[in-house]
Nucleic acid binder design. Structure first.
Length: 130
DNA sequence: GTTCTCACA
DNA sequence: TGTGAGCA
């Protein structure tokens, strides 16, 4: 099948919303905070790429670690090309917590992020009484 | 039906 | 952050 690049935007906000567990408001807020840079469609619709999805998931993890929008902005504001100590610290905690085995690196992201992502996807279940 | 932007609480 | 209104 056709391989899609991790930076090829093909996800609509609805998909991103489900995959990240965030709301449209939050996603837009992060975008406004320069956390992500989704592409635009002719109808001005946002389209996210696999790369953005993982980034959103990372943000979700940050929120799970007790951070807030300010923390997210701090993370994204600090993390440009080099990862900061805080990110490593958080990832380390997650790693130690879940004790992820040697996962296959199929992403451009470091192992820490990958492991965190796996944890996130494994615990993406929210208490929805329905 | 879904998403977008802007604005308000 | 959530929600509403009007629009494409």
């Amino acid at each position: 099948m056709a391989e899609i690049d991790p930076n090829t935007p093909v996800y609509s906000i609805g998909v991103v919303k489900e995959m990240t567990g965030l709301t449209r408001r939050q996603i837009r807020y992060y975008e406004d905070s320069e956390l992500i840079k989704p592409a635009r469609t002719k109808g001005n619709q946002r389209i996210y790429s696999q790369n953005d999805i993982e980034k959103l998931n990372k943000i979700k993890k940050l929120l799970d670690n007790g951070l807030n929008i300010a923390g997210i902005q701090e993370q994204l504001g600090t993390v440009k090309e080099e990862k900061n100590k805080e990110e490593e610290k958080i990832d380390d905690e997650s790693l130690n917590e879940i004790r992820v085995s040697k996962e296959k690196l199929t992403s451009l992201y470091p192992v820490s992020n990958r492991a965190s992502l796996v944890k996130l996807l494994s615990e993406d279940l929210e208490p929805k009484d329905k």
